[in-house]
C-alpha cells in the first residue's frame, strides 16, 4: 500500500523544483511503479509511442553519473522517458517524430514533478547527455530515442534545493508584445 498525500494542484505547481540532493534510501518498486504510471498517463498523441525505463540498479545509476554529464545528483532511481521513432513515424509522420513526441515527454515530466510531491519524492529532469550514452546504458534499440532522464529519490526540507528566482516567461494578450494583465498572480 502506497502512502500518498493529497496535493493541491496549484500548490504543487508552486512548489515544483529540481532536486539534486536526495536521501540515501531506496525508492520501493511499487512507488516507482506509481511514478511510471504518472508518466504513462501524460498526454501521448498516439498509442505505443512512449516507453518508460524504470531504473533502480545501483550499478546503472553509478555509471549514469559518469556517462550522463548532466546527471549531477545522488538519486537512487531514475525514469528514462523514450520515444519509439518507428511507431511515431508510422502513426504521425515526421512532425510526430521531431516535435509532438518531445512535447509529450515534457508533459510526462510535468506529471512526474507533481506526482513526486504526493510521495515525498523529488525529481530532476536531465537532458545533458549524448543519446548514444543513454542507448548504451539501458540497451535501447536504434528505433527507441531517449528524450529525458528523470532522477527520482526521497527528499526532505533539509535536502531540498532553494527555489530558483528570476526565471521569467513572456505573457501576451491576443498578440505578441501586448501584455496580458489578469490580476491573478
Amino acid at each position: 500500500m502506497i502512502d500518498a498525500k493529497p496535493l493541491d494542484v496549484a500548490d504543487g505547481m508552486r512548489r515544483r523544483r529540481m532536486h539534486r540532493i536526495f536521501e540515501d534510501r531506496p525508492v520501493p518498486a511499487e512507488v516507482l511503479g506509481r511514478m511510471a504510471w504518472a508518466a504513462a498517463r501524460a498526454q501521448q498523441a498516439r498509442s505505443g509511442v512512449r516507453h518508460v525505463v524504470v531504473v533502480d540498479d545501483p550499478v546503472l545509476l553509478a555509471t549514469a553519473r559518469q556517462v550522463l554529464p548532466g546527471f549531477l545528483n545522488n538519486a537512487p532511481a531514475m525514469l528514462a522517458l523514450c520515444t519509439d521513432l518507428d511507431q511515431a513515424g508510422a502513426t504521425g509522420g515526421p512532425r510526430m517524430v521531431e516535435h509532438v513526441s518531445r512535447l509529450d515527454s515534457g508533459a510526462a515530466c510535468a506529471h512526474l514533478a507533481l506526482m513526486a510531491q504526493t510521495l515525498d519524492l523529488g525529481v530532476c529532469t536531465v537532458t545533458s547527455w549524448a543519446d548514444e550514452a543513454v542507448r548504451a546504458l539501458f540497451g535501447l534499440p536504434a528505433h527507441i530515442r531517449p528524450d529525458v532522464t528523470v532522477a527520482v529519490g526521497y527528499v526532505t526540507k533539509e535536502t531540498a534545493s532553494p527555489a530558483v528566482r528570476g526565471f521569467t516567461s513572456g505573457l501576451h494578450h491576443n498578440a505578441f508584445g501586448a501584455a496580458f494583465e489578469d490580476g491573478a498572480r
Binding site: 559518469q66 556517462v67 550522463l68 554529464p69 545533458s128 547527455w129 549524448a130 548514444e132 550514452a133
Partner: peptide
Amino acid sequence: VLVCSAPL
C-alpha cells in the same frame, strides 16, 4: 565523464 561530455 570527460569523454561523454565531449559531444555536448
